[in-house]
Nucleic acid binder design. Structure first.
Length: 657
RNA sequence: GCCUGGGUAGCUCAGCCGGUAGAGCAGCGCACUCGUAAUGCGCAGGUCAGGGGUUCGAGUCCCCUCCCAGGCUCCA
């Protein structure tokens, strides 16, 4: 008779169990519900199968499917079932890696004879997976030494490569599916059903019957181990959840993101388009989108002038020498449009950045310390030759306009300038209705960075200080800085929880040196200024895209291309409608009139779908009383008999800047 | 750049085994004059992304190019 074993639960209490008890046994003593929801256990912080015998004295937490860890186990187990199904349907298929990822899982395959998956195949695979799940096959763990594992996976070259990498202690071994083994140690495999076995660290759910709330989503090509020189495999993506409700909620979130897609809204609201005739990543702004953009740009100019910036302009093309001197041709050439040959071999480039021009403005004459900080601002249109596979709507384009500025200052002024810029950025973002931010601090990149360690440290510290001064949560992005300096960026969380990089602030000691910038100090000696690159929107186009997705097209009233529509109930109210229209238009409101050529309900519907903030209905009573019926965006019930003066005040207050 | 899947009317999409193009919405015309999310009838609208090939015949099959989507790689 061996002694009972004792384990500690997460709340600090202890339990005694018969010797050899597993986590599943423990869960059963804690409650039937818990046992039913359990998918794995955390033993001393290590995730293991529920069936694993518990060591005496361990701290044990039961992991349920509705936790992040539990969902990861669920998803990984579902990925195994996916591979099992594919192997059943395509005998001879090779399977590579199949980890859990955010919201789901994937598995990479190489099918016999170069076969490929189609959408119909997804349906077949899913049916086979449901069959496997219905059989409630147990997942069983086995441990093998490397030689046994190689023999077991003799026909699976990708698995053998993983075994070799893991047993060799290769640090580049794929962590997502690697067996948790050191060189020379045993490897674990998991079996379920009679035919399927996969190299895997685990843990897994006890049996396939625990799975089922999943959906296969799409197929995609993916390079083996992310290397574009290696074979490209067929990847199947899916999502899996702990319950039908959680799965449905996720699918609803995806549908909501689809409805908010700025490319779709851009078309529906007639804001912009990307005609094939123009080229990928190149935007055409229509009148309404043009209005929004004009308002954003006017607002940006006003804000920057108030903050002590000077407006400058620079050309779209320039000679090669300028970008050679700035270093862009060395470090950025891949993203530049090819040059034009002009004037007996002189090469001109489309500009991918504005900074060299602003530097030349600075350098156009001698500068005194009394002029610093000198802040030069430009809505600068730049062109970048983004790879064809990466352009995406307004958020990744080949031609864009940055709200770009360069601040030239002394080292002493640097900290104050950085903090001021961050405050300006946050104020601007709040004006657009964005409220949930954090700051990301990007440090020195590997390899390609210019400058001394000491400069990088000083610059990074200055940025960190500014970030903490504005009181925002800061996340470190190791090695994410530009080649010429570290970066602080403001990340925005949008209405459906995604985050986007918007404002960026970069410190630069390099360009002032390359261009030999100077100012004359109070000591009458020449000094080198520091340069700060910064953009608040990032690019106007991209920011508009983010804003459209965040607001689902309900731009703040001050940005709405049409702020109000006036709808006469019948033809004989047309005269009064025209007076309402001209009153609002005269006050600077963007207002349109919809004559009574179709039923009122149809006109209201159209304007609501257009997201017009104020839909104004005027009829007999209004005409007699000098009032309007007001439909406010987002409000179901209209408000009747609103005096025109009162409405005008409201519109001016909300709609004008 | 790579992989896969796409491109049919302004938009969303149907179009079977190759037999010569269809719907809804939008547009235009006429009628309707209406108090809160789609009035009715009619008309027009197409180089089926572009080019080449196979075929008696191609939206449909094959090849090339362009563009789009989702991934992969990249993202100063």
């Amino acid at each position: 008779m061996s002694k009972p074993l004792t384990v500690t639960l997460p709340d600090g209490s202890r339990r005694s169990l018969p010797p050899g008890s597993s986590a599943m046994d423990l869960a059963a003593t804690l409650g039937r519900r818990l046992a039913a929801d359990a998918v794995a256990a955390a033993v001393d912080g290590q995730l293991v199968d529920l069936s694993r015998p518990l060591p005496d004295g361990a701290t044990v937490a039961i992991v349920t499917a509705d936790s992040d860890e539990g969902r990861a186990v669920l998803r990984h187990s579902t990925a195994h079932v996916l591979a099992q199904a594919v192997c059943a349907l395509w005998p001879g298929a090779r399977y590579a890696l199949g980890p859990a990822i955010a919201d789901g899982f994937y598995y990479d395959f190489e099918l016999p004879d170069g076969a490929r998956f189609s959408d119909d195949d997804l349906v077949r695979i899913e049916a086979e997976m449901r069959r496997i799940i219905a059989e409630d096959q147990p997942f069983t763990r086995e441990e093998l030494d490397p030689e046994q594992a190689r023999a077991l996976f003799a026909d699976q070259p990708y698995k053998r490569e993983v075994i070799d990498a893991v047993t060799a202690g290769d640090p580049s071994a794929p962590p997502e599916a690697a067996a948790d083994a050191q060189a020379g140690e045993r490897l674990s495999v998991y079996r379920n059903g009679s035919a399927f076995v996969d190299l895997c660290r685990g843990p897994h759910v006890p049996s396939t019957g625990r799975l089922g709330h999943f959906a296969l989503q799409r197929v995609a090509g993916a390079y083996w181990r992310g290397d574009e020189h290696r074979p490209q495999l067929q990847r199947v993506y899916g999502t899996a959840w702990e319950s039908a409700e959680a799965l449905q909620a996720h699918l609803d979130r995806l549908a909501e993101a689809e409805r908010r897609d700025h490319r779709r809204l851009g078309q529906e609201l007639d804001l912009f388009s990307f005609p094939a005739e123009v080229g990928p990543g190149l935007v055409l702004f229509h009148p309404r989108g043009g209005t929004v953009r004009r308002l954003m740009e006017e607002d940006a100019r006003r804000t920057h002038e108030r903050a002590g910036y000077h407006m400058v302009y620079s050309p779209h093309v320039t000679k090669q020498d300028l970008f050679a001197r700035s270093g862009h041709l060395e470090t950025f050439a891949e993203s530049m449009y090819p040059p034009m040959e002009l004037d007996e071999g002189q090469r001109y480039y489309l500009k991918p950045m504005n900074c060299p021009f602003h530097i030349l403005v600075y350098r156009s004459r001698q500068r005194s310390y009394r002029e610093l900080p000198l802040r030069l601002f430009e809505l600068g249109t730049v062109y970048r030759y983004e790879k064809s596979g990466v352009v995406h709507g307004l958020t990744r384009v080949r031609g864009m306009t940055q709200d770009d500025a360069h601040v030239f200052c002394t080292r002493e002024q640097m900290a104050g300038e950085l903090e001021g810029i961050l405050r300006l950025a946050l104020g601007t973002l709040r004006d657009y209705g964005l409220a949930d931010f954090y700051v990301e601090l990007s440090t020195r990149p590997e390899g390609k960075a210019l400058g001394t360690d000491q400069e990088w440290e000083e610059a990074t510290a200055a940025l960190a200080a500014a970030a903490s001064a504005v009181g925002l949560e800061t996340v470190l992005d190791e090695g994410g800085g530009a080649f010429y300096g570290p970066k602080v960026s403001v990340q925005v969380r949008d209405a459906i929880g995604r985050h986007w990089q918007v404002s960026t602030v970069q410190l630069d000691f390099q360009l002032p040196r390359r261009f030999e910038l100077e100012y004359v100090g109070p000591d009458n000696a020449r000094h080198r200024p520091v340069m700060i690159h910064r953009a608040l929107f990032g690019s106007v186009e991209r920011f508009l895209g983010i804003l459209l997705e965040h607001t689902a097209g309900h731009l703040p009233t001050w940005l709405a291309p049409v702020q109000a529509a006036v709808l006469p109930v019948r033809d004989d109210h047309q005269g009064y409608a025209e007076r309402v229209h001209s009153t609002l238009a005269g006050a600077g409101i963007r207002v349109e009139l919809d004559p009574a050529t179709e039923p009122l309900g149809a006109r209201i519907r159209r304007r609501r779908l257009e997201r017009v903030p104020y839909v104004l209905v005027v009829g007999q009573q209004d005409q007699e009383a000098g009032t309007v019926g007001v439909n406010r965006r987002g409000v179901e019930q209209p408000e009747r008999d609103v005096p025109l003066d009162r409405l005008l005040d409201e519109l001016v207050e909300e709609g004008l800047r």
